[in-house]
Design a protein around this nucleic acid. Structure first.
Lengths: 113, 113
DNA sequence: TGCGCCCATCGCAATCCAACGATAGCGCCG
DNA sequence: CGGCGCTATCGTTGGATTGCGATGGGCGCA
């Protein structure tokens, strides 16, 4: 049963507002970091894959992309460090999912340009 | 008089719609390229500077940033190649300005995530 | 308990990026 | 016509990225 998965991972997105500023030095650095994390076609593809699947995927990404497993893992690490995605251990496999808050933040920062 | 400047550079933004797709392989590459061009704090700062000034600036950017002139020129080149900004020669100095179409495109791509 | 699967990490090589100083081209002003 | 200010470009250096195979740890299942 997959009901256990949803309980531990990919929690329902909290719609809390983000009060951080849209511009200024800190916002510049934040936007640059997020943009750099997106600045690779494979990472954009991975992010879209995670969004489309809604539910969490794991090594399935390796099958979808023409990249080695270690390379995919590296890209996932970059995006996780940027806060774009989240990865939680779920038994034998790892559950990756999008972090909606960061995605909203990115939209706000880009929209504020 | 500055009226001559506005005539040759920074034309009034054309509000033509962009019919290109928001997702797919080509869109992924496009978003990755635009994000990479933004993936540096100095470039975000420069872009904001150009947006705030509305009118075009040139070497004034060098005075605003703690970077050498050649470095700023390099960043401008990266953003110009990505289509984010435009640079036209205007007598002794060079007139840089934002490319509104690309900015809208970026917002659409990020918003479509 | 031991095997097998899934994934992260290490180590390495190739490539790319960022930053700088130095140099060269190009208008303008005197 | 000769200098001067403004930019782009070149060449270089150090550091970061990207990609891969190989290795190792952790968890479930037999």
């Amino acid at each position: 049963m997959a009901s256990l998965l949803e309980s531990t991972c990919c929690p329902t997105s909290d719609a809390s507002l983000d009060l951080r500023p849209i511009e200024g030095g800190a916002a510049d650095d934040e936007l640059a970091a997020l943009a750099k994390a997106l600045g690779h076609p494979a990472r954009v593809q991975i992010l879209r894959l995670l969004i489309r699947k809604t539910a969490c995927v794991c090594g399935e990404i390796v099958n979808e992309l023409p990249l080695a497993q270690s390379t995919v893992s590296q890209h996932l690490k970059v995006m996780k460090e940027a806060g774009l995605i989240r990865g939680e251990i779920d038994g034998p496999r790892i559950c990756y999912c999008v972090e909606p808050r960061t995605l909203r933040r990115l939209r706000a920062l880009v929209g504020g340009l």
